[in-house]
Design a protein around this nucleic acid. Sequence first.
DNA 1: TTTCAACACGAAAACGTTTTCGTAAGACTA
DNA 2: TAGTCTTACGAAAACGTTTTCGTGTTGAAA
Lengths: 340, 340
Amino acid sequence: MKKRLTLKLIAKELDVSVSTVSKALRDSAEISEDTRQKIKAFAKLYNYKPNIIALSLKNRKTKTIGVIIPEIVHHFFTTVISGIEQAANEKGYHVIICTSNNSFDKEVINMEILANGSIDGFILSVAKETQQKKDYHHLTEVIEQGMPLVMFDRVIDEINCDKIIIDDFLGAKKAIQHLIDKKCKKIGLITTIDYVSVGKLRTQGYREALKENNIPADEDLILKVEDFDKSEMEIQSFLKDKKMDAVFAVNEHFAIYAIKAFQEQGLKVPDDVQVIGFTDGELSKRFIPSLTTVNQHGEEMGAQAARLLIKKLENEDAEDEPFETIIIETGLVERNSTKR
Amino acid sequence: MKKRLTLKLIAKELDVSVSTVSKALRDSAEISEDTRQKIKAFAKLYNYKPNIIALSLKNRKTKTIGVIIPEIVHHFFTTVISGIEQAANEKGYHVIICTSNNSFDKEVINMEILANGSIDGFILSVAKETQQKKDYHHLTEVIEQGMPLVMFDRVIDEINCDKIIIDDFLGAKKAIQHLIDKKCKKIGLITTIDYVSVGKLRTQGYREALKENNIPADEDLILKVEDFDKSEMEIQSFLKDKKMDAVFAVNEHFAIYAIKAFQEQGLKVPDDVQVIGFTDGELSKRFIPSLTTVNQHGEEMGAQAARLLIKKLENEDAEDEPFETIIIETGLVERNSTKR
DNA sequence: TTTCAACACGAAAACGTTTTCGTAAGACTA
DNA sequence: TAGTCTTACGAAAACGTTTTCGTGTTGAAA
């Protein structure tokens, strides 16, 4: 490894002091025009760049954001990261990403490592295991230490910090309203049984939309999938002889299995029956027919998270300000599984 | 921000010198058992963690790997990252990820920032724009500076560094051989026209497999898609009245459009015609029928890249060692678009 | 009693910056 | 001529570590 150019080397080479070099490069008025020119020319010629680590140590800030997500091979999370990166870069920050692999231990370790000076603040979506364990000591520790923390998507109510979430309830409601606007009368729901915050809220949105339109909810049209691995079978048999004109599914996969089942019955999507999914991924875009979905706006979520965090980081008085919870509105992406 | 515990604070508190504290915590024999115990107990009680930035400055290594990829919302790249992270963490490294968004400028800027002390070495897949521009000054600069660089997937032949690539030629050949083993006689190819390194090599693999099996290549069975946006149409009309019993497509999307076209002709996949794609993504897994594909083994690619880089970082003599190019073998993932 | 290890610890330098403060030289004022 | 102000720069501290080297105190050997 060749040694990098430092202030000290420049100083020696030009026979001035380190302080002079530093000041010259930062255009201090203390330095005469002559010397300043000379030093700057030299620095430019040999492509001097200040050492970021030294600056971080000196300034006690790293201009780096730590992001911890449950998994990276996952469309939604990558869109969030993408948003974080853009917003962070705009403000001159960069981003360290760690995955917890949905493991509590790895989440704790990653946070500890990053908290030891590598970053100025956290953006986090907690691991499933953490949700189950309900052990949040690593989160409270970081907060007590005074390091800002923004949680997104999978947030924890008990933890007092800034949060960015989407409105699952409203998202589902909008989807159903859209179907109703398309003259659908019998709208099915395919949801999950245990995904509390997700399935439950989305189901509530479904019911609310029906209610507002004076359509009685028909429990026969609601399927709560018990076993994810057998979801295709469950959906297939559920959809048999049900005579619905639309289905809302709480994720991409259920939506696709529904379409498949309809097609096997000889029904055409969207002509005979329309389908809307939740979570807008690659699958929704490319499936044939492509899927109308509720978009979670991951990028915006990430961008907002980053901006909120940076606001806290750069605003000295921010410590006293109350924590915010920003709700990102969902959007409906119309594609070919619903009528135009 | 509360201030973190430092050696200096411990020293003051316990009325010893900073050096004593440091040595005690590192179990130096210079320190008496008594003081050592006392210091360690204190440190543990107040949860002392050494400041990583200070260590980085002192040791002039950060134990951090910089990764630059063209896009993060992309299944293949996320699998690579996943592999990098795992391998890196095993060796006590962590990972900073930046995306170039396929922009030359952003690639250059990101590299410059990271090279200024934040990281010990690079793992990189270049932006499309960089490939077009053929401007590699940022790569050579980093290398000259003595910072190790490992390129993966989209590598640049002219740059002299370690590389990890997959064997597109062999991957395609294996796919075709698989179809031939399944008694296919008339195998179509859907490829791209301009993707040099990718489409070309895979096409060569196709031809080679046919040749080895003494099947004459029929140019009528080869489609070079001209316009990605109109690929569905092109594929549809190409497949009309072609009477093939199998198709190999150089990516997921072409494969899916092919299946769709066959189905519209009333043909069944895989009973009447079998299909294999390249690049194993979410789409391949979830499409109905699920797609048999050539797997690029992104995780292994990432893991190998990380291991290779770390080897260079930790081996002092490594500078003299010649650069390696590791070829990751592709695998065939059998699913429902081919016969069992 | 002197000499000399061994022991246990502290001072200081180093990593690469920035910034505060001090000061020599010259210019200006009275 | 003496005093004061600029100007232009350097010394040193600081960020938090690690490590080398120096040194005062023991205890034991001579």
